[in-house]
């Protein structure tokens, strides 16, 4: 019996792009059937070429070269700097880009489901998204999740 993995991706920052695509591509490599349900800010991860960012604001665990107090983190450019630093580190350490992992998901037939309610809410058009995604709602996800061996909310 093929194992099934059901994932909800609800966040759209650079760091949060990794868990759904990384786990889904690996699960597909293990021969599991995988579906990811993208909702709210997670929908960004399905758009063609989003410039994902990471914010040190409200993220006290983020390693920084020097400690930066929260009040200073609102300075323009700090988010850009944190994002640049993270991307550089990912490259240095031989970590795949999140787009690479997304491509592998598409190639390995991971089903990417866009939550129709939030697509409408944020006024997305179908041409905003990469090819091969399917629309769906809560019941679509729950039907699959009810038979899944692994269910994750990210």
């Amino acid at each position: 019996m093929t194992k099934k993995v059901a994932i909800i991706a609800s966040k759209g920052t650079l760091d949060n792009a990794y868990p759904p695509f990384l786990l889904a591509s690996t699960a597909a490599a293990l021969g599991f059937e995988v579906k990811i349900f993208f909702t709210f800010y997670g929908l960004t991860l399905l758009t063609k070429d989003p410039d994902l960012k990471i914010s040190p604001l409200g993220n006290p665990a983020m390693p920084m070269p020097v400690p930066i107090p929260s009040i200073v983190q609102i300075i323009p450019g700090l988010e850009w700097f944190a994002t640049w630093m993270m991307k550089r580190k990912l490259k240095q350490k031989g970590v795949a880009s999140w787009q690479e992992l997304r491509d592998i998901c598409v190639e390995s037939e991971v089903e990417l489901i866009a939550c129709q309610m939030t697509v409408d809410l944020f006024d997305y058009n179908s041409e905003d998204f990469i090819d091969g995604i399917s629309p769906g709602g809560a019941a679509t996800f729950l039907e699959f999740a009810s038979e899944a061996d692994i269910t994750l909310y990210i």
């Binding site: 990384l22 591509s25 690996t26 490599a29 031989g94 970590v95 795949a96 992992l101 592998i104």
Partner: peptide, 14 residues
């Protein structure tokens, strides 16, 4: 060599 998780597994699969 030099590749990090999950690339060795994904490449092995391929």
């Amino acid at each position: 060599s030099g590749l990090n998780c999950p690339l060795p597994v994904l490449k092995a699969r391929k």
